[in-house]
């Protein structure tokens, strides 16, 4: 066993040097585990992660050290006899109660932010944007100046003819709808996404915004957030959707108010 572990330690050190992992690890050690958050709720999600890390980290270290210590301390030696002991109900109750309280306090702290993103109604002035996923692309729709999304009909869908959502030309509210492959939003404004899918289940996720939600065919799922930092972020599919899952990418531009207004204007010119 010692032989095996020694070989491993040598191998791991070699591999770490060879694969250029040292800078990676230094970065990890400095706490840069997550990409910097760019949304209001993201900061709370991160805080809950690190609270959990503190609690479970202590539990993890104590348990592993205790395991190693007990095995070493009570390893078989001549003259040592094991203690004939069947356990103690008092201790069973003690550690049951302790873990229950610890774990429940910890997880309960995280429910507020969950309710913010998924349950609490979006503010009146939230900007509505519809996201429709398909194999293997994203369609982003803005309601246009009238603030209303036009009717879509599956039988009118025609990717080649430039109508990927099946917008109904007979419907006047759809005339000013804007359908684009990438998303732009203004910073510090509440956003409400409406998530849909044309074919199979996908998942809309943006790392920096701490957003992730399945897009399910047959459902319209709301997702609310406010971005706090301008920048260009990658939208990734996070639910296996077929052979092109790994390349189902789009972008989300978080812009200043002026930048967003300019972007909208640029898009409408087409």
């Amino acid at each position: 066993m010692l032989l095996a572990i020694t070989i491993w330690i040598f191998t791991l050190i070699t591999v770490i040097l060879f694969t250029d992992l040292v800078p990676e690890m230094l970065e990890l050690a400095s706490g840069q585990w997550f990409p910097e958050t760019a949304s209001v709720h993201g900061a709370i999600v991160d805080a809950q992660f690190f609270n959990t890390l503190m609690v479970t980290g202590v539990v993890f270290i104590l348990a592993q050290v205790a395991l190693g210590y007990l095995v070493f301390r009570y390893r078989e030696r001549p003259g040592q006899t094991a203690y004939y002991y069947h356990g103690s109900n008092k201790m069973e109750w003690a550690w049951t109660a302790a873990t229950t309280v610890l774990f429940f306090v910890m997880v309960s702290m995280g429910y507020g932010v969950w309710l913010d993103v998924y349950v609490h109604a979006a503010p009146e002035d939230a900007i509505q944007i519809e996201v429709t996923a398909q194999q293997f692309a994203w369609n982003i729709r803005y309601p246009g100046p009238d603030g209303q999304f036009g009717i879509v009909r599956p039988e009118l869908i025609d990717d080649a003819a430039g109508n990927p959502l099946g917008l109904d030309p007979q419907d006047p509210t759809g005339e000013d709808d804007l359908v684009v492959p990438t998303m732009a939003i203004p910073v510090n404004r509440p956003i409400e996404l409406i998530l849909r899918s044309k074919d199979v289940t996908h998942n809309f996720s943006v790392r920096e915004l701490r957003l992730k939600q399945d897009t399910v065919p047959g459902m319209m799922i709301p997702l609310r957030f406010t971005a706090t930092k301008t920048g260009k972020y990658e939208i990734a599919c996070s639910e296996l959707c077929g052979m092109g899952h790994h390349r189902m990418r789009s972008f989300l531009d978080v812009l200043s108010d002026q930048g967003y207004a300019d972007w909208l204007e640029d898009q409408s010119e087409f």
Partner: peptide, 24 residues
């Protein structure tokens, strides 16, 4: 040892708030 390790990482995933980020 593995049961402890895999168990504590479960506590990040059983919270919907942290799972928003870690899911899948």
């Amino acid at each position: 040892s593995l049961f402890v390790t895999g168990g504590v990482s479960g506590l990040f995933l059983n919270q919907p708030s942290t799972d928003i980020y870690l899911h899948d």
